[in-house]
Write a protein that binds this DNA or RNA. Structure first.
Length: 423
RNA sequence: GGAGAGAUGGCAGAGUGGUCGAAUGCGGUGGUCUUGAAAACCAUUGAGCCGAAAGGUUCCGGGGGUUCGAAUCCCUCUCUCUCCGCCA
């Protein structure tokens, strides 16, 4: 949620900011609902105050006395009209809350305006993308690929987009997870193992609901959602809590499988590891004060870049334009690795500052050094998503003999030098 | 899954229809005392919403009901604990 005070005091500024995003909402309607709500609440509360005052008088009277019985009669009508006003106030409040929840976060002033991914700004490129991959080919065309990542049998067990990782490839996935967690640990992120199903309150707090309802798997029996990212349970760790400023920023990391229905996005570019319904990811999450969140975003980004450099994968960083950043985002960087076989950039991380948007929905606040309550800021970034990183390694590190060189930083978990088999 | 008990402020724990946002203790904060600290003593100490403010109002696990009036009575859901069953 955005700050309702800002919406009341500077509606034009809010409208202008939000119009830069791709979401269409009727902000004037929300402002109107807010005014109605406030009027109804004031009405109901003054009626309630009158009722309470009368009730106090009544408590002084002798029970069953003529005065008492008379008072009961007048209290009855007072009570029923109060109840009516309270119902109206509650309805007005709910109407407002529902509409208010549909307003996306405002993009930060540093976010470039734009409508599509073509308007995203490349702010950094690392590594050479031309030339150094003489043997590269799309990972799904590597002869032994299907024997290590078995999509056909995944279809039997579950369906499309749920492959089995077999043998050395399963160990490779585990190595990547371990390496990512280790780097996160070294950078000061405390590891957590969160639940991988969440309730609707959690999904609402981080902004998946009501925006992305159809993208999550849902258990009708319990009303739980399979997490699309560890961001959801991890951010909700502190839901409805008050933190101390002296303990901020808090850094956490988590490895989890992630589940995405990807409804409507099944098309040409989803072969192999490019897009799966279930994938592994290490997520980095931060809770900060309002003052530091933008600096923390830059640090978060560099924490992720460090991993790609160590893996020797060429990458670029996109500063996402206003039309391409998500519903709860204020600012977002996407990191893409170059997959030399497909000659494509694959998104492997998204680093975002949600400012106070998620925290306000989640009720995550902090007491500043003067003791005042403030809404926290939340951030997160993938560090990293496994399958696409793996795809880039398979493609870029493919050698003349048909095997794939394993990055040295993984040696602790994968002591062998190569994956696959010679041709 | 079955039986029973329970859910009150940061924590512990009173309160069984009106004067209860709620006793008391602990903890926190400020002060007195002290060279300093401890102890002792005094004061203070929840959050949401409406309001420019004064003030008002809501919240005793969630929702609903009874009543002029609910922390307190009824229904229901959720969660916790104990025992039994089952099971990684």
């Amino acid at each position: 949620m955005i700050d309702i005070k800002l919406l009341r005091e500077q509606p034009e500024q809010v409208k202008e900011a939000i119009s830069r995003k791709k979401f269409s909402v009727d902000i004037d309607q929300v402002i109107k609902l807010d005014a109605v709500r406030r009027a109804k609440i004031t009405e109901a509360e003054s009626a309630k105050a009158a009722q309470k005052a009368a009730n106090q008088e009544m408590a002084q009277l002798v029970k069953g006395s003529p005065e008492f019985l008379e008072k009961v009669a007048t209290m009855k009508s007072l009570s029923s009209s109060t109840k009516e006003l309270e119902t109206l106030a509650k309805e007005a409040d709910e109407a407002f809350q529902a509409a208010f929840l549909e307003i996306p976060n405002m993009p930060d002033v540093s976010v470039p305006s734009g409508h599509t991914e073509a308007d995203n700004e490349v702010v950094k490129t690392w590594g050479a993308i031309d030339g150094p991959f003489p043997n590269a080919r799309p990972h799904y065309d590597i002869p032994w690929f299907e024997s290590r990542i078995d999509f056909a049998r995944g279809v039997k067990a579950t369906g499309a987009g749920f492959p089995f990782y077999v043998g050395e490839m399963s160990r490779m996935v585990r190595a990547l997870i371990n390496y990512f967690l280790e780097v996160a640990h070294q950078n000061g992120y405390e590891e957590v193992s969160p639940p991988i199903v969440v309730n609707a309150e959690s999904a609402t707090a981080t902004g998946q609901l009501p925006d992305k309802e159809g993208q999550m798997y849902w258990d009708a029996n319990e009303g739980f959602y399979l997490i699309p990212t560890a961001e959801v349970p991890v951010t909700n760790f502190y839901r409805e809590e008050i933190l101390e400023a002296k303990n901020l920023p808090i850094y956490r990391c988590a490895y989890t499988p992630c589940f995405r229905r990807e409804a409507g996005s099944w098309g040409a570019d989803v072969r192999g590891l490019n897009r799966l319904h279930q994938f592994d990811k290490v997520e980095l999450v931060k809770w900060t004060t309002a003052e530091t969140s933008m600096d923390e975003l830059e640090q978060l980004r560099s924490n992720v870049e460090q991993i790609l450099e160590a893996l020797e994968l060429p990458f670029r960083v996109l500063k996402m334009c206003s039309g391409d950043i998500g519903f709860p985002h204020a600012k977002q960087y996407d990191l893409e690795v170059f997959a030399a076989g497909q000659k494509r950039w694959l998104e492997v991380s998204s680093c975002s500052n949600f400012t106070d948007f998620q925290a306000r929905r989640a009720g995550i606040r902090y007491r500043d050094l003067e003791g005042k309550l403030k809404t926290a800021h939340t951030l997160n970034g993938s560090g990293l998503a496994i399958p696409r990183v793996l795809a880039a390694i398979l493609e870029n590190n493919l050698e003349e003999d048909g095997r794939v060189r394993i990055p040295e930083v993984l040696n602790k978990w994968m002591p062998e030098t190569h994956l696959g088999e010679t041709q």
